[in-house]
Amino acid sequence: MSLLKIESISAGYGDAPAVSGVSFSVEPGQLVALVGANGAGKSTLLRVIAGAHKIWGGSVSFHDQDITATQDFERARQGISLVPEGRRLFASLTVKENLNMGAAARRPGLWNLDSVVEALPMIKPLLSRNASRLSGGQQQAVAIGRALMSNPELLLLDEVSLGLAPIIVDEIYESLSTVRKSGLGVVLVEQDLSRTIKVADYIVCMLEGHNVLEGAAAKLSRESITAAYFGHSIESFDDATKKGGATK
């Protein structure tokens, strides 16, 4: 039984498609990475999964329940938590209040204020600070912490390293591996290929809204991923599950 299963999802802006016919699934405890260039539709896809972006076609199921028509806040209550691009902290709330907003879904579980602060130690001295007065890395840590506070079963992470210093990114990824020990499924959108390959169990490569390559991280070569990333021919890569994009 899959934790998350999406089937031939399409979505877009106005009349312009951003995601076309993408399918994949996430097992409990698995980390799936979505890679692709800017504008490949990764963020849109994550937002569709979270229910924050209108779906044009296809279906989303969570625990084998069809949630395609379920609203964003209901999905959050069922255990899908999105860490949005740009962190989107509540600027006029303190860090502690931001974290507590994450618990609004009232889901029971391991995560609470104490355990989140323990997993993301850089938050600790900031708890009473206003969220508008944080650095980018601090904001990112709080955004992840806020998502964990809902005790999600599926964590959707959008561009966590964007605009952050490498040392901060290391710290955040380290926290992430601590977090994964609790067994939650993760879908990660990331520009940094080498980091992605290191942490991911499974990789989905997107190009112009299509799923062009996917496979277990261990079985995909770096070259095949790079080729798919930039849209070169991928015919010679045998281990990859090749997808024909739009003609699928």
């Binding site: 209901e74 907003m101 879904a105």
Partner: peptide
């Protein structure tokens, strides 16, 4: 919108 992602309508 982000409030909705927290499970609050």
């Amino acid at each position: 919108q982000t409030l909705s992602l927290m499970g609050v309508n």
